[in-house]
């Protein structure tokens, strides 16, 4: 800096110096935008925890985790998160039941069976499916899938977990297919040639050689699928009902954690009230559940990665 004020410095060097300072400033600015990502993470944790703390001063953690009734808006208040967790787990489970086999088969088909042309045509369709807003899928579940299911099973109520679970599964198929397919395409061609040179068929190569070789990436796809299903909001809020109900029965109606947050947000929120705080406690639970599934998933993935 001192040099800049020094009149002895030639104008050319001064220009260099100015340019260097400018470069530094720009680098700092870019760094800040990178740091912003860390800031968001910290802010999420801070907001959820700081709003949940007063909630847990009202409600003991024991009641929160063991009570099976969730009625923060009734006169007799219960705060048993399990009534919401059950809904989240049930819809997630149904969704995975649909998405994991369909997504995996699609991935294997695209990676090992389809010709180049078919693959190049199908992948954009899958991407379009990924882009469909979830509120539209919710409409689909309520107005089309549930009535269809009612034809097979007439006792099904208008709001149930089965329909939205299935639709959620359909929504997730392209995610699994795309991530798992990438993992399979990344398996070196030498591996395929090795299998084909042994006289293996496409199916044998795909199942016995490529799938084990890509297992780490395939599990990553499943982890992503679980995160999507656990955090999915609009499909369940529209089609599963918003009444908390401690049940794992897919034909009953129930609220998920996300659906509860939406239903409270739609009403009049009194800032700082227990209802307001409860959605942050629910959100924190949701985040921890997502985190837990991710950790389990990565542990499984690591275990497989060691075996193969």
């Amino acid at each position: 800096m001192a040099k800049l004020e020094n009149p002895e410095v030639s104008p050319r060097l001064a220009k260099n110096l100015r340019r260097n300072i400018l470069e530094r400033c720009i680098e700092f600015g870019l760094l800040c935008s990178g740091i912003f990502a860390i800031f968001i993470t910290l802010a999420i944790i801070y907001v959820l925890v700081s709003e949940a703390i007063p909630f847990f001063q009202h409600v003991s953690l024991y009641d929160f985790l063991t009570d099976t009734v969730w009625t923060p808006n009734y006169s007799i208040k219960h705060y048993g998160i399990m009534a919401l967790v059950s809904g989240t787990l049930t819809t997630t489970f149904i969704a995975l039941l649909v998405a994991v086999p369909l997504g995996t088969i699609t991935a294997i088909y695209l990676s090992e069976f389809a010709t180049h042309k078919v693959r190049e045509t199908i992948k954009p369709v899958l991407e379009l499916l990924v882009g469909v807003p979830t509120v539209v899928f919710g409409y689909f579940a309520l107005m089309l899938v549930t009535p269809l299911l009612q034809k097979i099973y007439p006792d099904l109520t208008t709001f149930n977990m089965l329909g939205p679970g299935i639709v959620m599964g359909i929504m997730i198929v392209p995610y699994i297919a795309s991530v798992a397919e990438d993992a399979m395409r990344a398996v070196p061609m030498a591996m395929r040639e090795g299998a084909y040179a042994m006289g293996a068929t496409r199916f044998q190569t795909a199942i016995k050689v490529i799938t084990p070789a890509a297992i780490s990436g395939i599990i990553a796809a499943y982890i992503l699928a679980i995160s999507r299903a656990v955090g999915e909001t609009m499909i369940v809020a529209i089609a599963a009902g918003q009444q908390p109900n401690f049940t794992f029965n897919p034909v009953e109606s129930a609220a998920t954690i996300t659906a509860y947050i939406v239903s409270v947000a739609l009403g009049d929120l009194e800032h700082g009230g227990i209802g307001y705080q409860s959605i942050f406690a629910a959100g924190l639970t949701l985040l921890l559940m997502t985190l837990m599934f991710n950790i389990i998933g990565h542990a499984v993935r690591k275990k497989f990665a060691e075996r193969y």
């Binding site: 070196p188 040639e193 040179a197 050689v209 070789a213 193969y308």
Partner: peptide, 16 residues
């Protein structure tokens, strides 16, 4: 391929 087998340039064992 079942009658004529092949060994490749780079070793390519399966992940098994």
């Amino acid at each position: 391929r079942m009658r004529i087998s092949m060994v490749f340039q780079k070793p390519n064992p399966f992940p098994k």
